[in-house]
Write a protein that binds this DNA or RNA. Structure first.
Lengths: 207, 207
DNA sequence: TAGATTGTTAATCGATTAACAATC
DNA sequence: TAGATTGTTAATCGATTAACAATC
């Protein structure tokens, strides 16, 4: 179905999904690209172009059915799948990820946390067991998690990633500061880059 | 000095800064755009174009001095400034931000955390006092923090932002899930968007 | 000086916006 | 049917890449 979808379009889908979810919550059941474009501060053209990478979800003279479009984008994003997820690193960020309840609700089920610290191994975070990182590879081969959130110090990341890659993981959600090569999809949350960008924008205000 | 710098160039600066920092740590003191481009997997043209938005940092026949270029980009990013920072919300994400030691090292000094929960107010996180969110506006007017990291549930964000905006904050680092209008620079860390993008890439692998 | 590599202009490529015929 | 709004093509705009003269 999908044409060759530009990266930049794929990155806008979560935002569309989010806005449509809000509209749904407000009881709006129909919307035109024009009205949506005003809310989202993009052009109506862009919305129609973007959606038409995946198919014609609208109806001339009517617009889009909010529920159907929300569903369709959710399906494209793979949000109707159920994912088994693990978290590597029980530090501040790892704990924040493990504690966030919203993921489970969306079908991302965190089943284990891994760390190297003996005093953490055997404990629980938000009801999720903390396991020994030494057993990560074995765990993956037996439990086949889909997604690994990597929240370890930068230097430790490449080794962890190699283990994950070799044991059937489908994707890596990376919170460590390093970029690395990887054969599976990696999505990095660049916290420090984001803070530097803010610093830049404070320091160099647009005229 | 700076020409009109495209957004997309500004967003690449932190990455250049990071790579140059690594090179510096490895004792490399000279690099050509060609060599850097191979490490960073971008084109040499792009690196030269990007840098020339800000000035000529290189030397024909030689390349770039790693230390000088790193310094120059740090200066452009405003990393030589000292920022007073506050964190709003002492939940998982707020705690992660408050606990991360790297910020202070880079000149982002977290001076207070705010929350609404009575049982948290008066406690400390990483040696930083947790104050009553009701006093946020007053605190800002007396202490003049530069940056506020907003890590509150989505629904609470707009009110917090309004208070911050009205009391002289220079920039907002937003971890909440909502986008909002704001007169000062806002940098949002879209964790859930990032996870959805990963889901998309797992579900729709490139051929 | 000769070789290397920048700074910068020109060419290409892709993404965004505008326009409009198709059609509900 | 008439009005509205899509899907899609064409025009514009901006970003990336290529090329090369300037110069260290």
């Amino acid at each position: 179905m999908a044409k060759n979808v530009p990266e930049v379009v794929a990155r806008r889908l979560p935002r569309y999904y989010r806005y449509l979810g809000e509209l749904l919550g407000q009881g709006v059941n129909r919307i035109s690209s024009r009205t949506l474009s005003e809310k989202m501060r993009v052009t109506a053209s862009q919305i129609r172009q973007d959606l038409n990478c995946f198919g014609g979800f609208g109806q001339q003279g009517y617009g889009y059915n909010v529920y159907d479009l929300h569903e369709a984008i959710g399906e494209i994003l793979g949000l109707n799948n159920h994912y088994r997820m693990i978290v590597i690193g029980a530090g501040n960020v790892g704990r924040a990820v493990a504690n966030y309840a919203g993921f489970r609700r969306r079908g991302f089920n965190i089943e284990a946390v891994f760390d190297v610290k003996p005093e953490l191994i055997g404990s629980e975070i938000n009801g999720i067991p903390v396991l020994d990182a030494a057993n990560l590879g074995e765990y993956c081969r037996t439990h086949l998690p889909h997604i690994a959130a990597v929240a370890v110090p930068g230097a430790a990341a490449p080794d962890i990633v190699e283990v994950l890659e070799g044991s059937g993981i489908l994707g890596i959600w990376n919170f460590s500061h390093s970029d690395f090569e990887c054969s599976v999809p990696v999505e990095t949350v660049h916290m420090s880059d984001s803070l530097m960008t803010l610093s830049y924008r404070i320091t160099n205000p647009k005229k």
